[in-house]
Design a protein around this nucleic acid. Structure first.
Length: 543
RNA sequence: GCGCCCGUAGCUCAAUUGGAUAGAGCAACGGAUUUCUAAUCCGUAGGUUGAGGGUUCAAUUCCCCCCGGGCGUACCA
C-alpha cells in the first residue's frame, strides 16, 4: 500500500508535467538501504517516450514530488529515483494496522466480477493422492486470498460421475467381488486395480447382499455406489486437510440438462464438426490447437472433452465472469483444446485461465520415494497428513512456485526445529503470545493510548516495514497467481521479528516504550495469524 | 519427432515477471543466553545464473540454437 501511494503521486506528477495520463509507474522496494526505502525506474521508460535523458527526467520528477510530507528525502541516482521515508510515516501506518487488528489487509468489494476457481476435481474412483494435495492447497489458498482482498471468488469441485470411468469402476469392482468370493475373475487392463477397490467391495458387501445380482446389475450398482463412496472419501480427506469447497458440480447433472447436446448443436451450426471413421471431430485447429479432437467416439460415447466443455458452458451460465481452472501436470496438453472449444462456443478465451502446477516427489533422507499406481504402491493424502501433520503439509505444498517440481522432504516436514519453516513461523507467533502473557502479568496493557512515535530503532523500523508489506504480498499472489509468495513473506516477517526480539526487550521499566513495542509485536502476531490462515495453517499460542 | 515446464552457491530454493552490487535457509566455520520461549539471533565463507549467440540504456528474466532433466503427445480422464 506504500508502493501504491508513491506510485499514485508519481502518476499525478507525470500526468501534469508531461501530459501522459496512462503511465503506470512501478514502485519497488529498494534492493539496498543506500538506495532508500522505495525506488522507481520510471524515468527510463519515460526517456524512450520523451526522447530525453533519463537522469534529467528523474531529477525533474524529483523536484515535483519532493514536497510530500512523508519523504525524508528523495534522491536521483543514475536514472533511478529513490525515496527515503520519514519514521513518522511508518508510525502512522503501523497505527492503522494496529487498529485493524485481525482484519488487517482485508478489503471489501474491489470488484463486482464473480470468479470461479475449480481445482482438484479428481475422478471419484479412488482415494486422494499426494499431487491432489498440492492442487488443493494451491486452490484453497488462492481463493482465500482473493476473498480477503475483496474479490468475489468461489471454489468448486467437479465430479466426473457420468462417463465411462463409472462403468469401468463398476466392472472392476464386480471382478474384485468375484475374486473375494473365490470365483474366476479378470480385471480389465484399463480398469482400476488398487487395493482400495478391494476395501470398498468388502465394505459394501457387509451391508448389501450382492450375491443375488447378475453381473450387469452388480456392476451398475457397484459403479454408482463406488462413485459415491470414493467421492465422500475424497471430500473427507480434503476436509482433514482444511480444504472445503463452496460448490460441487456433478457431470451427471450436466448430462441430464443436455448441455453436451447444446455444445454439439452449437458447434454443428457453426460448421465446426466433421465425421471421421465413425467418430465425430471438433475442428479445434481453427482455434489454435495442434490437431482436431474427437468429441464423440466410434461407439457413440462422448470423450472427456465434450461434457467438460458443457461444464464450462454451465459455469458461464451461472454468471461467473472469470474462470480459473487449476490442473495437474498431466493435463497440460489439454489446455489448448479446452480453450479452443470455449472460444468456439462464443466465449472470450481471456475469461478462462488455466493454471498448471507441477509434480510432487516425496523425499525421505535424501531418497525419492517411488510410487506406482499399478503395483498398488500409492501413498495417499491421508497417509501424508497422518505422517507429517496438516500444517507442514499445507505449508510445503504452497511454499514452492507452482511451476517448479516440488521435492517434499518428509523428514524435514516432521522436524520440530529451526530448519522447518513452518515451525519457524509458528514459533514467532507463539513467542509473541508468550510476551503478551508476560506483559499482562506485569499489568501492562495496550487497550488505550499507544505512542508509536517511540519506535525509532533500526530493528523496529525494519519490523514495521515488513508488517506493512503484507497487503503487497497478497496482491502479488493475486497478480501473478502465485500463492508461494505468501509463505515466503511469512518466513521473512518471522525472521524480522526474531531479529528484533534478540536485539530489544519488549517489556522494560519504560512503560510507554513497552506499550509501543507490545503493540508492534501484536501487529506482527495478527499478521502471522492471518497469513497462516490464508494458507490453511494454524497459529498455536504456545509450542 | 512435436508441445509444455524446469536448469541459479555442495544441497533446497529466492530474485518484486526487464532494473541498481544475483539473495535466503541447510550443511561448514566462529560467536551470542543471570533476560518476555536458544524451536532464536549475529558473523565468516561459498557464483562464468547449463553452453553459445541475439534484442535492450539495462537480461537469471525476452528471442534463437544447442546440452541435460521432467511431463505430455488417445476415439483415457
Amino acid at each position: 500500500m506504500i508502493k501504491n501511494a508513491i506510485a499514485e503521486s508519481l502518476k499525478k506528477v507525470i500526468e501534469k508535467k508531461y501530459n501522459l495520463p496512462d503511465t503506470e509507474p512501478s514502485v519497488t522496494e529498494s534492493p539496498n538501504k543506500q538506495f532508500g526505502d522505495y525506488s522507481t525506474q520510471i524515468a527510463f521508460q519515460l526517456a524512450k517516450i520523451l526522447k530525453n535523458d533519463p537522469k534529467k527526467i528523474a531529477s525533474d520528477l524529483k523536484d515535483a514530488i519532493e514536497g510530500n510530507a512523508f519523504f525524508e528525502k528523495v534522491e536521483v541516482v543514475g536514472g533511478y529515483i529513490n525515496f527515503f521515508l520519514k519514521n513518522e510515516f511508518y508510525h502512522k501506518e503501523i497505527e492503522r494496522v494496529f487498529s485493524a487488528g485481525e482484519e488487517y489487509g482485508k478489503l471489501d468489494n474491489v470488484g463486482e466480477e464473480k470468479i470461479l476457481v475449480e481445482y482438484v476435481s479428481s475422478n471419484p474412483t479412488g482415494p486422494m493422492v499426494i499431487v491432489n494435495g498440492r492442487a488443493a492447497a494451491l486452490g484453497d489458498s488462492l481463493v482465500k486470498i482473493l476473498n480477503w482482498r475483496g474479490y468475489q471468488a468461489i471454489s468448486e469441485f467437479y465430479i466426473n460421475d457420468g462417463g465411462n470411468q463409472v462403468y469401468l469402476l463398476g466392472i472392476s469392482c464386480n471382478e474384485v467381488y468375484k475374486k473375494l468370493n473365490g470365483f474366476p475373475y479378470e480385471i480389465p487392463e484399463n480398469g482400476y486395480h488398487g487395493e482400495y477397490i478391494d476395501d470398498f467391495v468388502r465394505a459394501i458387501s457387509k451391508n448389501t447382499d450382492l450375491s443375488g445380482m447378475d453381473d450387469k446389475s452388480r456392476s451398475d450398482y457397484l459403479g454408482s455406489e463406488g462413485v459415491r463412496y470414493f467421492h465422500s472419501m475424497q471430500i473427507e480427506s480434503l476436509r482433514n486437510f482444511g480444504v472445503e469447497f463452496d460448490s460441487e458440480v456433478h457431470e451427471k447433472r450436466i448430462r441430464e440438462e443436455n448441455l453436451p447436446e447444446y455444445v454439439l448443436n452449437t458447434l454443428k451450426e457453426k460448421g465446426l464438426l466433421y465425421e471421421n471413421e465413425g467418430a465425430t471431430f471438433f475442428k479445434s485447429t481453427q482455434f489454435g490447437d495442434d490437431k482436431d479432437r474427437a468429441i464423440i467416439k466410434k461407439n457413440g460415447e462422448y470423450t472427456y472433452l465434450l461434457p467438460d466443455a458443457a461444464y464450462h458452458e454451465d459455469k458461464v451460465r451461472r454468471n461467473f465472469e472469470y474462470l480459473i481452472d487449476i490442473f495437474g501436470p498431466d493435463h497440460h496438453g489439454y489446455i489448448k483444446r479446452l480453450k479452443a472449444i470455449f472460444k468456439a462456443l462464443g466465449h472470450d478465451p481471456n475469461r478462462l485461465e488455466i493454471l498448471i502446477h507441477q509434480i510432487v516427489n516425496l523425499v525421505n533422507e535424501g531418497e525419492k520415494i517411488k510410487m506406482s499406481k499399478r503395483k498398488g504402491q500409492i501413498i495417499t493424502l491421508d497417509d501424508l497428513i497422518g505422517d507429517v501433520g496438516k500444517d507442514p503439509a499445507r505449508f510445503f505444498f504452497v511454499m514452492r512456485k507452482k511451476n517448479a517440481h516440488l521435492d517434499f522432504d518428509m523428514k524435514l516436514a516432521k522436524e520440530k526445529s529451526e530448519n522447518n519453516p513452518v515451525f519457524y513461523v509458528q514459533y514467532a507467533h507463539a513467542r509473541i503470545s508468550s510476551i503478551l502473557k508476560f506483559a499482562d502479568s506485569k499489568g501492562i496493557n495496550i487497550d488505550n493510548y499507544v505512542d508509536f512515535s517511540l519506535l525509532n530503532e533500526e530493528k523496529e523500523i525494519e519490523l514495521i516495514k515488513m508488517v506493512l508489506m503484507f497487503p503487497d504480498a497478497l496482491d502479488d499472489v493475486i497478480r501473478i497467481r502465485e500463492p508461494a509468495i505468501l509463505p515466503k513473506y511469512l518466513i521473512d516477517l518471522a525472521s524480522a521479528f526474531h531479529s528484533f526480539y534478540n536485539k530489544h526487550r519488549v517489556i522494560t521499566e519504560n512503560i510507554e516504550l513497552s506499550q509501543a513495542r507490545l503493540a508492534l509485536v501484536q501487529c506482527v502476531k495478527n499478521t502471522i495469524k492471518i497469513g497462516l490462515s490464508l494458507i490453511g495453517v494454524s497459529s498455536p499460542e504456545q509450542m
